[in-house]
């Protein structure tokens, strides 16, 4: 019964979602942490910066246009490659493959908050409001990651009905998966998924977008501290 449901789930077409920003709530602790306040506590922020953050969070509400598109594939694994859609190799590297090796399926996804926020960041930065521009940029990064987390939760909820679990999200550009891997990743989704395009250097446009894969299986593990998988020791976002 469960196998049948899983097969049905795997055969579904790409699924999209588009939200209004009103449905989207930012976590101020996440914003504080992303601004560099190491304890992630809004109490560490001076009154003035706090005001700027509050103003920019309110402005972001009208600028964030969350969209996503995702599709599950049966997973095949060979060496440091995850093969999806029957024949498209995603050369994810050894670190990510160690997390995926027990997966039976792989979800390929693209998430974005659109380009309006990025445009406003540019206007503020080049218009002399460096503080507001910087804070808004950080809020955009938190928003798109948070939206990607929400997709992960949705997928984890769906596959739990088949008795399966999910790995962490893994993206090109991290854990020795080259950013150029975006080309293969995007090739298994419809053109411009969720309105996101790639430029010649595999950069996503809009910039505030996240793409990647999530492994699904009975024996996969979700790592609470995924930074331990990454060799980028100097990364300012590193949590462990």
């Amino acid at each position: 019964m469960r196998t049948g449901k899983l097969e049905q789930w795997l055969s579904q077409p790409p699924r999209g979602c588009e939200e209004t920003s009103a449905e989207f709530v930012l976590d101020s602790q996440d914003v504080a942490r992303a601004l560099g306040y190491a304890r992630g506590s809004v109490d560490d922020i001076s009154a003035h910066v706090s005001d700027v953050v509050a103003t920019m969070e309110a402005e972001a509400q009208s600028l964030i246009r969350p969209r996503w598109l995702w599709k599950p594939f049966r997973g095949m694994f060979k060496g440091d490659c995850c093969i999806v859609n029957g024949s498209t190799p995603l050369v994810v590297g050894d670190q990510i493959m160690a997390q995926l090796k027990n997966a039976t399926a792989v979800v390929v996804y693209v998430v974005t908050i659109g380009e309006a926020l990025e445009r406003t960041v540019q206007e503020r930065m080049y218009g002399g409001d460096n503080v507001g521009g910087y804070v808004l940029d950080v809020i955009g990064s938190v928003a798109v990651e948070s939206f990607a987390d929400r997709l992960q939760e949705l997928i984890a909820g769906e596959v739990s009905e088949f008795g399966l679990k999910t790995t962490n999200r893994f993206s090109p550009g991290y854990c020795s998966w080259p950013t150029s891997g975006q080309q293969e990743l995007f090739s298994v989704l419809p053109e411009a998924p969720a309105g996101v395009d790639l430029n010649a250097s595999s950069l996503m446009i809009p910039i505030k977008s996240v793409s990647g894969i999530i492994g699904v299986g009975a024996n996969v593990v979700f790592q609470q501290y995924p930074c331990e998988l990454c060799s980028l020791r100097g990364c300012h976002q590193r949590l462990a």
Binding site: L35, G36, S46, V49, V52, V131, Y134, V135
Partner: peptide, 14 residues
Amino acid sequence: ANEVFIPEVLIAAR
């Protein structure tokens, strides 16, 4: 020394 962060530095620069 992680006593202040980028927003404070930007405000001071202004």
